[in-house]
Amino acid sequence: MSAQGETTPTTAEAAVPVRRVKVRRPVTAYWHAVAAIAWKDVRAEIRSRELINSMLLFTLMTVMIFSLALELDSNARQTTVTGVLWVTIVFAGLLGLSRSLASEKDKGSLDGLLLAPIARSALFFGKMIGNLLFVLVIALVLMVLLTVLFNITLLRPLLLLLVVLGSIGFTTIGTLLSSMSVHARSRETLLPILLMPVVLPIVISAVRGSTAVLNEMPSQDWLPWVQLLFMADVIYIAASYALFDYVVEE
């Protein structure tokens, strides 16, 4: 908990009262710690807006490049828009993931977090929820953006469900792998290489499922993808929960 002040020195005084007000609901100390870490990341981001701004600009540029490079007509858009959506979410998400633990390590606050008397997995879920929130914000903005620019209504409940499920799987395994890649010599290049193959099954399922939903196909066309995504999420969360302790032990 002491690490809170170390991340952003300016928040040190405000940290204690704000946290007590905001995080009253968690049942146990474990979830209290998870919420505290996630909230710390969110608040640091709200104050600096460093990451979210670059992610949003990146998103805008990627969408522009896609529409220029693919020269999509209205028919082609219908089938490719979910691909554009997911590729952009993954690339923008990678920016956030690689910063998330790298900034902790560079400022030395990672040691503080590791010294805190909380379960290591609480640290993992805190970081993961923080990352997930950033990715979801990007995804929401992106969906609005694509709806406007491609003239296809992407904001549908089922699509939102797919986006949430896909983002959970992506950020879970992404947080685990980024906590490994921060120790590497060339961390910026290593994270995408490590993450892409593991996250591809999720991206494929999400793209296929989203396309089926978007083209208003019957439920047997998209339901298997939702199930597959759900299964992958459960597997990745369980694996990360079991393995994160080994990644951060020093």
Binding site: A184, L194, V198, A239, Y246, V247
Partner: peptide
């Protein structure tokens, strides 16, 4: 990517640990 991870981490103890973790994760594929 597993091979890339091994070449990317310098500390031998950490390399072994990370490689073990990634070998388990990669088996999902």
């Amino acid at each position: 990517a597993y091979m890339m991870l091994r070449t990317g981490i310098e500390d031998p103890e950490r390399r072994r640990r990370f490689a073990a973790v990634y070998a388990i994760v990669a088996f999902a594929s």
